[in-house]
């Protein structure tokens, strides 16, 4: 049991989804439920939903070369004022740092299509960590929920 569990002051949501893009809406429902049950502001809930969506979309679209069925594990933990998200899959290794940021000042004519998913995730979350561990991709994201500042208003 971890120190956080001992403190007894956290909320945890764990579930897994299949590698099917339709599962994104299922994950969104679980996350929305968790966020509203814990008083997490809509802006934070949106950021979590978007990040999970972008990572699931990448893994489901590009992570598997065998055409088989896979499970992707999700864990969302609220610890005080910080929400942590962990997404773990057995897809091919990926390099989230490899792509250049899109040119957000480009004109409509010149703006290339795509390259926004990981970029938006980094923008919306406070931290983004990737590691490859025993054949699994593990992405950990954190974000301050804004619950405290909301209560002070």
């Amino acid at each position: 049991m971890s120190a956080a569990d001992d403190a007894g002051n956290n909320e945890l949501l764990q579930f897994s989804v299949a590698n099917d893009l339709r599962e994104i809406a299922v994950a969104a429902d679980r996350i929305d439920e968790f966020c509203s049950a814990n008083g997490i502001p809509p802006a934070t809930a949106y950021a979590i939903n978007l990040s999970v969506d972008e990572l699931l979309t990448n893994t489901i679209s590009y992570g598997y070369e065998d055409g088989g069925e896979h499970r992707i594990d999700l864990m969302i933990r609220l610890d005080g004022d910080v929400l942590a998200v962990e997404i773990s899959d057995d897809g091919i290794e990926f390099a989230p740092d490899s792509a250049d940021d899109p040119d957000t000042n480009a004109s409509i004519e010149d703006r290339p299509i795509g390259g926004l998913g990981i970029f938006l995730t980094r923008k919306m979350m406070d931290s983004f960590d990737y590691r490859r561990d025993e054949g699994r991709n593990i992405v950990t994201l954190t974000k301050k929920t804004g619950i405290a500042s909301q209560e002070n208003q």
Binding site: P102, T104, N105, A106, R111, L120, M124
Partner: peptide, 9 residues
């Protein structure tokens, strides 16, 4: 805004 789309559209 984050994606810069507000400057294109």
């Amino acid at each position: 805004a984050s994606s810069g789309f507000d400057r294109m559209v």
